[in-house]
Design a binder for these strands. Structure first.
Lengths: 339, 339
DNA sequence: GTCGGTGGCTAACTCGTGTTAGGCATCGGA
DNA sequence: TCCGATGCCTAACACGAGTTAGCCACCGAC
């Protein structure tokens, strides 16, 4: 007896009406069809029994499950995925939707199987999140299921996508240094990467807007040791820069260590700006890192927002790329230019 | 035409049989009921149409959705949650189940609503994961839905739970130092916490087993600065310890910084063992941290394993607490005892 | 020739809801 | 008195499967 949920029929019996009447009450069709007294009786009966409509049966009939599917290539490896997932879950929740997540681990076969499994469950839309912003071939079979990509681009430009605005972010990083009075600004780290190119372009945008000449650029890789090595070189030469923007926080941490090694104080002698806001790192360096945050949470929110709009409007999301702002997180590694 | 999935009726029509026959094929009831020739015709028709049974309709009839619900209090804040989620998703996937996740953000009201939303979707079981291992009052209403707690304990001992074996983990940390020949071993960090007490007990277990006298214990808190301060004190006194086990990796990082400040080399003069394996930290300290890992992924796997067993056996998971091993992750911060 | 059994298949019901067409009063007006 | 309109409600079907009971033809045995 404890095990079985009450159905709309139970409620109907208790209120002395048909189950149709119960359905009306729970779907806003009561007004004009059911007398206020009857509505009240039904509501009371439902409350007493603790009735809640069965979402599975409802999904079958309505052909909407109020569930959106999320397939990603690496959820555990980075806190970013967690942020994106949180953003997605929260906007979904606000619209009374839930999120069904599958991690493909980057395996295309599993990825296709994951999409199939989600479609079998009749999810209302699919959010496809990648960890690296490359172009991505979606498994086919999703047909006209509303689909939005997050942090990656569709192979053909036929799907909606949500991405960080790397170019503007690059400009933001550099502007943080310019605003503090720096004029000799270097760029350290980076790989053969769309993001690297975009951020560098943003860097140049900011320099140009301020009428400042370009400094040295060292695309040395994306790891702590890369930042360390490049900075050691860069900072021991003549005419050393007073500010450095980095490809990411790992590289920036390497730069901080190199500065410490060379006896340069940060931010006294040198200012450093990171990228990504990898908080486990950026909050714990000495000094804590001023950095440009990737909008992972916002991407999750925006992507689900697009999906929900498509679902309620029963139209595919417009296949445009939306770029989201990368906000500056001010901590302690930027100070006024020395001298 | 592209938009609508084929149903079992479409397959039936194409194969010239009833939809019941199709259902038989997809549920292992074909043998003995359908001639091999008919089976083959059905299979062929299904393949040509790309038919896959609708999981929503199937869930309604079978009263099993092949979805398990996961409610957690903080998914984004730590990489641990991601690990747990990954473990859960993987074992679920291996059994052809998916995971429906809700983050309550620690709000008990939302938590209850989340459980209701999951039950509405008729999830086959619920995995309740917390970030801190305190006792937890489950929202009622889950009745006899199979439920397993991960990383926390039920308020009454009426539910199954999966936890790290903190005591054994504490012993593992200390044993790593004992095995390297250390005899003066300190404990740094910790809060008023079950985990702290358990790990300390394990520490003493290991010392007792090796017949080594207890060293200083500083329950100084759980942050980097706490570790730094405590270690500065501890290491500058006379008769300083040669090995330290820490409450967590943040504390351990503080200890490393204190050692550097005092001119002690790690692991030459001092060996340090962390706890948690917070990789973003432990992999990037100098030297990289030898630490005891919390079995988050294993907890996710074990919890879902228990749930699946309960679901297929249609019996509640036995309300016992299962403690999972915390493995030692060897990196570079432990060396032979000096002298 | 009838009876019982068996292999091969389907009609008809079920799960719990949403939805459409229509029934049955009652009421006002001619 | 009869007619149409209106207010209130329900019967019956649909969604897409899984499941039970049973039909029908064929076979062998008596």
């Amino acid at each position: 007896m404890a095990g079985s949920r009450p159905t709309s029929k139970d409620v109907a019996k208790r209120a002395g009406v048909s189950h149709t009447a119960v359905s009306f009450v729970f779907n806003g069709r009561a007004e004009g069809n059911l007398s206020p007294a009857t509505q009240e009786r039904i509501r009371a009966a439902a409350a007493e029994l603790g009735y809640r409509p069965d979402a599975v049966a409802r999904g079958l009939r309505r052909r909407r499950t109020a569930v959106i599917g999320l397939v990603t290539d690496h959820i555990a490896s980075s806190p970013f995925a967690g942020e994106l997932l949180t953003g997605a879950m929260e906007t979904a929740w606000a619209a009374e939707h839930l999120v069904l997540t599958v991690d493909s681990g980057g395996d295309p076969v599993k990825e296709a199987a994951a999409v199939d499994a989600l479609l079998d469950r009749r999810v209302d839309g699919i959010l496809y999140a990648a960890m690296s912003p490359y172009r991505v071939a979606l498994p086919d079979g999703l047909g006209d299921t509303p689909t939005v990509l997050a942090n990656c681009l569709p192979a053909g430009d036929d799907r909606a996508a949500v991405l960080p605005d790397d170019r503007a972010g690059g400009a933001t990083a550099t502007r943080a240094l310019l605003d503090a009075g720096h004029r000799r600004i270097a760029v350290v780290g980076g790989i053969d990467d769309i993001a690297t190119a975009e951020r560098l372009a943003g860097h140049r945008d900011a320099l140009a807007a301020a009428g400042v000449a370009e400094g040295p650029v060292r695309h040395a890789g994306g790891d702590l040791s890369d930042g360390y090595a490049a900075a050691l070189h860069l900072l021991s030469g003549p005419d050393r820069p007073t500010g450095v923007t980095c490809y990411n926080d790992r590289v920036a941490t390497g730069v901080l260590q190199a500065a410490a090694r060379l006896g340069l104080s940060v931010p006294g002698d040198l200012s450093v700006v990171g990228f990504d806001d990898q908080r486990m790192l950026s909050e714990h360096t000495a000094p804590p890192l001023t950095t440009v945050a990737l909008p992972h949470r916002a991407m999750g929110e925006a992507a689900v927002g697009l999906l929900l709009a498509a679902v309620t409007g029963s139209t595919a999301p417009p296949p445009v790329v939306r770029r989201l702002e990368c906000p500056l997180v001010v901590r302690g590694s930027v100070g006024p230019a020395p001298r």
